[in-house]
Design a protein around this nucleic acid. Structure first.
Lengths: 234, 234
DNA sequence: CGCCTTGTTTGCGCCAGCGCAACGAAGCCA
DNA sequence: TGGCTTCGTTGCGCTGGCGCAAACAAGGCG
């Protein structure tokens, strides 16, 4: 169960190391270390110096940014195969946000210098890095647009959908996400209370089913309809 | 006046070509073409294929993203020396937003293939590109946080400050920005009406002075105080 | 099993900000 | 110079969503 051995195949399937020649995956693999975190563990802290680059192998991680008053926003949700904690490496050497495990999670990590060395040595990694950061910037800009132009219910639908579409296989019986009401609020830019009310309504409508610190998407199509502003099409 | 000749020194002072050896600036320079736009001109359109990478030499440009209902958000403001229109190159080959000249503006542009060739050939450019996109992503994430946790007046202050701090020399008599009330609304995630009310209040308080399609920042310190939520410290 | 912590729900009052409408002002063009 | 277009201002009424408060539910742990 705890077994999530780091193999060349796993690396090759990750967003950052895709397309890397075997020589490269081998080298990256030798330099990585494996760390497992329990649910709720803080993996790194906002404002701390960047010591590692991280690749999630198992579980879910949220990236949270706080302001001076301690109010929080979830900036990104990480799924296995995704890299995180690398932005600061190329800006000021500090983590711009904190990372928290949403479930038991295993990551591979590289020392900062080792990582940037790999990026420089293998153009495939560098190109992947550029592409990934560009994609994330596009996503952030789309979220910015939503925050000003869409209403809460649409934004909640978007938040869930954005995470759901990254699933490879559509799970039958619905996709279960380890997100609390507060998490959803911090994803959609609203409050716990409003998130709860939205989910209760969706529960009644059979669109999504939620329990303690988790939500299951039952009808992605209905969410998509809500997200695009159409009246909840039967 | 119209003269904004593209010299090696100008390239070396830009965000993307900084630190590039003379050989590289020379090559980039030879492959660039210069284009001048009048105020209000659309430089490229959202959803169109990326034909060029752009570097602003003179004037101001806004990057605007629209949703299906035509509601708009300003995603970024460009100042001379900054690169724009490059995100799509590394994602899906389409511009994710449109660019509009806020004032008469001159840009240098490179054909998409030429540009990616330069990025691959000169590691300095590639590293600058990663750094720039990372910085912009951090900024976008900070804006996301503000959108959920700060009130309108703070967000307007932030929008203006974010643009103002990029000025090299603090201009005496205030910094004048070519932004209409609508532009400011689309930057801060509010409406034209509310932006107008905020600016009128600031006008009375002597914090900023605004005219037709322009705002002049008189007291950046007061804006910083508002931005951080402190009561408008005399 | 019972306590404690953490998470969820829901009623209720309130208000920041939206957005219509109407007017006013500035610039552009012929 | 006059008309037209674009941009800005402000009064007014309304409401989406905030956020307190209080009760309830689900685990975790000793």
């Amino acid at each position: 169960m705890n077994a999530a051995p780091l193999t060349p195949a796993v690396l090759a399937g990750s967003d950052l190391f895709r397309g890397l020649p075997a020589r490269g995956t081998g080298e990256a693999l030798r330099q990585a270390s494996l760390v497992t975190h329990t649910r709720g563990t803080r993996i790194f802290s906002q404002g701390a110096p960047v010591k590692h680059a991280h690749l999630l192998l198992r579980g879910r991680v949220k990236i949270v940014q706080s302001n001076a008053q301690g109010e929080q926003v979830i900036v990104r949700l990480i799924r296995p195969g995704e890299t995180f904690g690398t932005l600061g490496l190329y800006v000021d050497g500090l983590y711009p946000a904190e990372a928290v495990a949403l479930s038991e999670a295993t990551e591979a990590r590289w020392h900062a210098g080792t990582f940037t060395g790999l990026v420089q040595k293998y153009p495939e990694i560098a190109l992947n890095l550029v592409r990934l950061v560009c994609e994330r910037l596009q996503e952030a800009q789309a979220r910015l647009r939503e925050m000003s132009t869409e209403r809460v219910e649409q934004r909640v639908a978007n938040a869930l959908l954005r995470f759901a579409v990254r699933e490879k296989a559509p799970e039958r019986g619905g996709l279960r996400l380890p997100l609390s009401r507060r998490d959803i609020a911090e994803l959609a830019g609203t409050t716990m209370y409003t998130a709860s009310r939205v989910l209760t309504a969706w529960q009644r409508a059979g669109i999504a089913s939620s329990g303690r610190a988790n939500v299951t998407i039952l009808r992605p199509d209905a969410l998509a309809a809500i997200s695009s502003g159409r009246p909840s099409s039967q």
